[in-house]
């Protein structure tokens, strides 16, 4: 289950970055991937649609987004795993 979340998040980010999933590593940041602010909100939308969750993210208040860490690919995967676990419960 966790692996599939990981793969699906990577697939979403890869599509946004126009890269192959295999070219994305866990320690990369969105900036490394060339994903800008519009790409980020589009990725969040794709994540919400894919996992049927609501992502608490406000582009104006990074400090309010402690429940959804976007600092790296790995952080995003863990945040989505957390959301799926709590919001599916």
């Amino acid at each position: 289950m966790s692996d599939s979340i990981k793969d699906r998040v990577i697939a979403i980010l890869a599509e946004q970055a126009m890269l192959e999933p295999g070219d994305i590593s866990l320690d990369q940041s969105l900036e490394d991937l060339g994903i800008d602010s519009l790409g980020l909100v589009e990725s969040i939308f794709a994540i919400e649609e894919a996992f049927d969750v609501s992502v608490p993210f406000n582009a104006n208040a990074p400090t309010e987004n402690r429940d959804f860490d976007i600092s790296s690919v790995d952080a995003i995967i863990r945040a989505v795993q957390g959301l799926v676990a709590t919001q599916a419960a």
Binding site: V41, I44, F45, F57, N58, A59, N60, A61, E64
Partner: peptide
């Protein structure tokens, strides 16, 4: 969808503004 709107108020120029 753009995630630029505030849920609690408009606080221009204030460090704690959120949209």
């Amino acid at each position: 969808g753009l995630r630029v709107m505030s849920r609690d108020g408009c606080r221009p120029f204030s460090a704690n503004r959120n949209g």
